[in-house]
Computed example of a mutant assay.
Amino acid sequence: MAGDDSSGFQAGQSGLIVRVPEAEPVVRAWRERLDPSARAGVPAHVTVLFPFLDESSVDDGVCAAVAEVIGRHRPFEVRFERCGRFPGSLYLVPEPGIPFVRLTEAIADRWPQHPPFGGRFDEVVPHLTIAQGQDDAVLEEVEAGLRDRLPVTGRVSSVDLMVHDGTGWRHRASFALR
């Protein structure tokens, strides 16, 4: 998932994401080269919560609870027209970002033992990671290569549960916004 230490993926880890298929044609080549989560099978996305529960804890009851929490939120339109940066990382900024923050907060409130990104950050910053672990020159090259291909727009209508099987990330379930 975006923003995490991708070299540390382990079997059984899970995360909740919003897929952004409309961004794939724009970011796929960059992500496959510069984002370890893409090489591990995670599509272009905005992370809702990572890490989430271990796969062994995800049963029908958990899925029903996730569906109930996600189902309290309405679908929304999103636009990505500019890039942002974290140290060593480049991402697309979703606008509006608040609906993503609300999804993250709702899931984190339901499962407080699983704060976003393990509690490493004070603020939830929604983002679609393109490159991580890169120097500024690489990030500038990527950003320049994206300028003429933005904006990307899409509709958010579901959240997906992804699980790492020891070799890559696999889709396990989808939960509809209503």
Rank of each mutant, 00 (worst) to 15 (best):
A2D: 13
G3K: 07
D4W: 14
G8A: 13
Q10H: 11
Q10I: 01
G15N: 03
I17S: 00
R19V: 04
V20T: 13
E22L: 08
P25C: 12
P25Q: 09
V26Q: 00
W30L: 11
L34Q: 02
R39W: 08
H45S: 03
F52G: 08
F52N: 07
L53F: 05
L53Y: 07
S57A: 15
V58A: 00
D59V: 11
G61Y: 04
C63N: 09
A64P: 00
H73N: 08
F76H: 13
F76E: 10
V78P: 08
R85F: 15
G88Y: 14
L90G: 00
L90N: 00
L92T: 07
E95K: 05
G97C: 06
I98H: 14
I98M: 12
F100Q: 11
V101W: 13
E105I: 00
A108Q: 14
D109C: 01
D109Q: 11
W111L: 02
W111E: 03
H114K: 10
H114G: 01
P116D: 11
F117H: 12
G118I: 08
G119P: 00
G119N: 01
E123Y: 14
V124C: 05
H127K: 05
I130R: 01
D135W: 13
D136W: 15
A137P: 00
L139Y: 12
G145R: 09
G145W: 07
R149I: 05
R149V: 04
L150H: 10
P151K: 05
G154R: 08
M162Q: 11
M162W: 15
W169F: 12
R170V: 07
S174K: 07
S174E: 11
S174F: 07
F175Y: 15
